[in-house]
Amino acid sequence: MNDALALVGRLLLAALLLAGTVQKLMSPEGAQALLALASLPAWLLWPSGLFTTFAGIGIALGVATRPLAILAAGYCILTSGFHILMDDPWQSTIAFKNWTIAGGFLMLAAHGPGRFALRP
């Protein structure tokens, strides 16, 4: 049962990363606006999209799971800073959600991908 739960958890975390990639590709304006608020260049959206793509695929497949999970946790913490907008409660909720997701990635890093992985 633990290995099946690890697989489902891995796939859900990976789905979130990959959905972020799709969102960046289909509608980059929102992420670019958040970057602009932080006085950062819009082109940073593309390395971010590459990271979420490769990390999402790697975590889904169970390849390099622990290092990717640690990097993904850091990514979630880092990007939460873009969402701490005190005049927008929804964005602040997204920041807290990112911290929670970082916790899930750290649990994945601590416990590994489980038996149902290409590299368990």
Rank of each mutant, 00 (worst) to 15 (best):
T65D: 10
G56I: 07
S48A: 15
A60S: 04
P41F: 12
L34A: 06
L16S: 01
F54E: 05
W43K: 06
R66Q: 14
L35K: 07
A15D: 08
L12Q: 03
L50S: 12
A19G: 08
L12K: 02
A15E: 06
A33S: 14
F54Q: 04
A36Y: 03
V22E: 06
A64C: 07
A55P: 01
S39P: 00
L18F: 11
S39V: 07
L34M: 14
W43F: 15
L35W: 04
L68I: 04
A19D: 09
A31M: 13
A60W: 00
P67V: 00
A69Y: 00
I70H: 01
L18H: 05
L68E: 03
R66G: 04
L40P: 00
T21E: 08
A69H: 02
L17H: 01
P47M: 10
Q32K: 14
V63N: 06
V22R: 13
P28W: 08
F51I: 10
L61P: 00
L13T: 12
A36T: 12
K24S: 04
P47H: 10
K24V: 01
T65V: 11
A31K: 01
S48Y: 02
L12A: 13
A14Y: 00
P28C: 10
A36N: 06
L16T: 04
I70G: 01
W43I: 15
V63F: 15
L40T: 12
A33Q: 15
L12E: 03
L35H: 08
L18G: 05
T65I: 07
P47K: 07
P41W: 14
L25M: 12
A69G: 08
I70W: 09
V22P: 01
L45R: 09
L16D: 01
M26E: 13
L44A: 08
A31G: 10
L35T: 10
P67H: 08
A31H: 05
L45H: 07
K24A: 04
A60N: 02
L13M: 15
A60I: 01
L44E: 08
P67E: 10
E29K: 14
L44Q: 10
V63P: 06
L25S: 08
L35E: 07
I59W: 00
A38D: 12
L44F: 12
T21Q: 12
A33T: 15
T53V: 15
T65Y: 10
M26C: 14
T65R: 09
G30C: 11
L18K: 03
M26A: 15
L37D: 12
A15L: 13
A33N: 14
L16A: 08
A15F: 07
A38Q: 13
A14H: 00
V22F: 14
L40Q: 10
W43M: 11
L12T: 10
A19M: 10
S27A: 15
R66K: 15
W43S: 08
L34N: 02
G30L: 09
L13H: 05
T52Q: 09
Q32H: 06
A14E: 00
A36F: 04
A15M: 09
L45E: 06
V63L: 14
S27Q: 15
G58H: 02
S39I: 04
G56S: 11
G30D: 08
A15S: 14
G20H: 01
G30E: 09
Q23L: 11
A19P: 03
L16V: 12
L25Q: 07
A33I: 10
G62N: 04
I57K: 11
A31R: 02
